[in-house]
Design a protein around this nucleic acid. Sequence first.
RNA 1: UGGGGCGUGGCCAAGCGGUAAGGCGCCGGAUUUUGGUUCCGGUAUUCGAAGGUUCGAACCCUUCCGCCCCAGCCA
Length: 566
Amino acid sequence: MSEEPSDKAPSLDFIRTIVAEDVANGKNDGRVATRFPPEPNGYLHIGHAKSICLNFGIAAEYGGTCNLRFDDTNPAKEDVEYVDAIKEDVRWLGFDWDDRLYYASDYFEKIYACAVKLIRDGNAYVDSLSAEEIREYRGTLTEPGKNSPHRERSVEENLDMFKRMRAGEFADGTCVLRAKIDMASGNVNLRDPTLYRIRKVAHHRTGDQWSIYPMYDFTHAVSDAFENITHSLCTLEFEDHRPLYNWSVNETGVAFKPRQIEFARLNLSYTILSKRKLLRLVHEGHVSGWNDPRMPTLSGLRRRGYTPKSLRTFCARIGLAKRDSLVDVAQLEHAVREDLNARAPRVMGVLHPLRVVLENYPEGEVDELDAVNNPEDESAGTRKVPFSRVLYIERADFMEDPPKKFFRLAPGREVRLRYAYLITCTDVVKDDAGEIVELRCTYDPETRGGTPPDGRRVRGTLHWVSAEHALDVEVRLYDRLFSREKPDDVEEGQDYIASLNPNSLELLESAKLEPSVAGAAPGTRYQFERQGYFIVDPDASADKLVFNRTVSLKDAWARIAARGSQ
RNA sequence: UGGGGCGUGGCCAAGCGGUAAGGCGCCGGAUUUUGGUUCCGGUAUUCGAAGGUUCGAACCCUUCCGCCCCAGCCA
């Protein structure tokens, strides 16, 4: 109501601009239909999330629909394991295809009919050249190809041979159906591309019903047409295929003609987003599986503790354009922190425990202190945290000889234990090796809750856990899987495997957690105060909780310390 | 050497002839019982380069430079 004249409508990305114009112009009667078309040959990753958010997002914004369609035309590489995982991941991300779940394989009969039409019209022919010969005949990027000797077979012979290909009369590789376009085209995709190949392999859905399978370009174009897709969005590498896409739609005479629009795929720093490369990480055991919390797969991110909302926010913020770009992972990390800061209950947990004995605290006495569950959300309430004579604090929160800006615990220094008391370090106990094993401190009984009655200032506030009440838990501290911003930027003779971060996982067998988290179910998220966000891993058992660190909190001290040590 | 794209701050990204949005990061400062959050301020006289058109250009024209993709019976 109080819009300033200077307020500008949020700028649309180039695809939404096109869609908005089409809708405004009444193209397709103002209808918007998109699709997300994964091949079930691997797990979905964050790059796919960009496409999912785009396709489902645009459909939602313009009152349209988005279909989930499996591009399952290569039975040799595909499997139901992947289709199930993909469906779960898309749903988890927060999108719904209602009853519009499709498979290109459901169209095989219709696609076959399209191919027959092409043959009848003299637009396709069966080629008996071998794969190697076809490659030789194709020419190179700079030299035109030459026509196959079989290019002028009669329509009757083509029809007959294609029928026999389908009937399984020929062995794999003996012949293919090719589009008859232009062997001299500067666009190699137009040099009589293969439409169908023989592949006597059982398909995960059609079984051994077919011995020939249509190729992607042909399948995708006509499938989009069958589903009346108005805007077929794909990544840049298919830009060169667009003429073939249009050719397929035009020459088969399908009733609807979708428009293909290409956008730049997502690249993330310190990350690899290539199904092939991810598959290798799994196969060679560099990670525990597709859902290893270090993997950029949706299942990995889920296990790591990323929320669907944070991924959607991330996808909305990185924008959409045609230029190759490398998005900083910090952007992703920011998105989860933002979401989790608002909703994750806070809890105290000591990762690297250092024993602290309060010398003036009565032995055997236990105090129940009130702690706020989430300062960002008052409705989250408070909880009781037990306090006693022996505690654990973080090793990194004590320094015997601290630098200027360190305002945590040190000999003779006073700090606050969060929600508890102010304590002063009186003595440092070391073992024979000189290693600090325990701190002797005194507490000020007048400061219960953490507020000194005399108003004296205390610089540091530490998290802590009562030793006798502490839960012993396993914590997996994850860091980026690769230590190089662009994992593929390696020296001659090496590949991205050489960029693997040897410290991407630090296992803590016995971290100490406050008792309130006992019995937390897998998938439960917390913020361990002053440290980061954690989620209970499915590996957790009744007797031992297991946590994955989703992301650490921003750490100003770490930056100062790093600066100081340079 | 053929074809198709792309070049705006450290990283993304708006802008579409009227004098550089926003986010991330970074640097300050304020508030703070998380060195978190929040808040406030700073961070491109310049849009790959050079010419040209124009009163006026990141936006139009020319040339040049750089980067990405394509020669699967993969998608």
